[in-house]
Amino acid sequence: MSATATTGRKRKGTAPRGVPYLFLAPAIILFTLFLLLPIGYAIYLSFRQIKVSGLGLGKGSRTEIWAGLDNYASALGDPELLGSALRVLAYGLVLLPIMLGLALLFALLLDAPRVRFGRFAKLAIFLPYAVPGVIASMLWGFLYLPAVSPFNDVIGALGLPEPNMLGGGSVFFAIVNIAVWGGVGFNMIVLFTSLRAVPGEIYESASIDGASDLQIALRIKIPLLMPSLIMTTVFSLIATLQVFTEPLTIRSLTNSISSTWTPLMKVYRDAFSQNDIYSAAASSVVIAVVTLVLSFGFLRLVSRQAFGGENR
């Protein structure tokens, strides 16, 4: 810290020096115990493995030793982890444009001058935010079940072959739909609130100049929303790569989802069903690094394009 930061600002009655640190102590302690320490421990474990001597029976026959990069080598060479990672990347590529595109569309419509039912629609579309992922997956899961599904009733009444939305090919989209449903409202509210912060005169003068609502939306509102769009994309991306609850819940209703369908499901299985915490730790470190690289990569890419290399 520079000297100007401490002395330059007006500080008539000075606080004792230790006070800020004391006030920050609860946050720093909790952050250290529940974020830094677990991250460090995960990294440590990822370099360890169990060495079994003899038949692996009795005390002392199983010892923890350094593994070097063995766990990483097997994680990176694991076809199950790669398969689940590719599946989740595809999932993100389908989910993010649909979810954020709909959130943007709804936010622009809520902000448009000639659109009615805004208050009702805003509340209704935001409502799924209050529904936990497990519950949302159960509700949609039942709606997908051929025996219960209203969609199948309608399609069957039309004399068409009834689809199985929980089948091997369509279950991917069934889960995308649950995530869209759960995420669109929150993102809509974030974008809508950003739009509301823009002074209305900007639009008034544009419309006096003869711009249509559509032109105003495309040329003025969307560019203004860019920072919020980028932020919602990054947070959605991080959440997307960690998808776990929805497929795990739907798995109770169908056998077309494997126990390693997403990377997090694989980490969970390795750690808790197969008791291999070391390779689970290595996998989770790999996934964390990929997540960070993707989010920072995205931020770099868009900040260059959206802000001309200038940081916000």
Binding site: I39, Q242, I287
Partner: peptide
């Protein structure tokens, strides 16, 4: 920080 890194440790 993705929650995935935290859950197991």
């Amino acid at each position: 920080v993705p929650g995935i890194t935290l859950a197991v440790p």
